[in-house]
Simulated assay, not measured.
Amino acid sequence: MKHAVAFGAAMVMLAACGSGDSTVSKTPEPTVTSQAPATAAPPSTEDPTPTPAPADPCAVNLAAPEIAKAVSSLPRDPRSDQPWSPEPVAGNYNECAPLSAVIVTANTNDENPNTRAVMFHLGKFIPTGVPDTYGFNGIDKAETTGDTVALRYSSGVDGLASVVKFRWNGNGVELIGNLG
């Protein structure tokens, strides 16, 4: 009879902790799905975070510090007596090219500020010995090569456009042609 009383007491306890009162039965069990493991890549000794490749020094870089440095050394714009803006409006500055150039504007609020080209040899500013480069407002990429820069003037109003080519001759910059 002792067993019957003990059994009855155990049943009462189980009834008191039935499925309606248990937190365990209300919490869903984690679902386990069985999938075939993917083929794992061999362990890598490399750092998992990619490091950016160094900038290509031979790529066009209109934000190069050499440009701002060169522009700051230019005499003021003869028309407005203002300094030149260090942010090029066009260009192909490249520290590997025998000749490259940027076009800058006078730092004015004028609707049509004066422009000029600033030339570089292997990324270094050419301060003297450059033919007059005022008035150009673009680079003709089709006519420009590593040692030749084709500067474009386009008024935009009357459709007048011309291209003038300058070349690095081994010692300096020379005017080699007007294309129209």
Rank of each mutant, 00 (worst) to 15 (best):
S22I: 04
N112L: 06
A64I: 07
T148I: 10
V24W: 08
T108R: 05
A38S: 05
V5H: 06
L62Y: 14
A36E: 08
V12G: 07
Q35T: 14
R79F: 12
A40Q: 11
A64P: 04
C96N: 15
T108M: 03
P88E: 04
Y93V: 01
F166E: 01
E174N: 14
A38L: 07
T144V: 09
T105G: 02
C58D: 01
M119P: 08
W168F: 05
R76S: 12
L175Q: 14
G20L: 14
N171P: 11
K26S: 12
G18V: 06
A142C: 09
G8Q: 08
T133V: 12
P78K: 02
N107T: 00
G180V: 05
A97H: 03
L14F: 15
F125L: 01
N92F: 09
S22P: 04
T145A: 04
A4N: 08
D21W: 15
P57D: 00
S162M: 05
T108W: 01
A70K: 04
A101I: 06
V71N: 00
D132V: 10
V130C: 02
D81G: 06
G170K: 03
S34N: 08
T145Y: 10
G129Y: 12
S100A: 01
A106F: 03
G18C: 12
T144P: 07
V24P: 07
I103E: 00
L160P: 08
M1C: 13
D158Q: 15
F120A: 00
I126G: 00
G159V: 01
E95D: 09
K165M: 01
S19H: 12
S19R: 11
G20W: 13
S25L: 04
F125N: 03
P28L: 04
T144R: 13
W168S: 04
A55I: 08
A59T: 07
D77N: 04
G177S: 00
T108G: 08
P88V: 04
G20C: 12
S154V: 06
D47C: 09
P30N: 13
Q82F: 07
G129I: 13
S44Q: 09
A117I: 01
A40Y: 09
P57S: 06
A101C: 07
N109R: 14
F7R: 10
D140R: 01
N112Q: 10
L122E: 15
P54Q: 05
G138L: 05
A68G: 15
S19V: 15
G172Y: 05
G172W: 13
F125C: 01
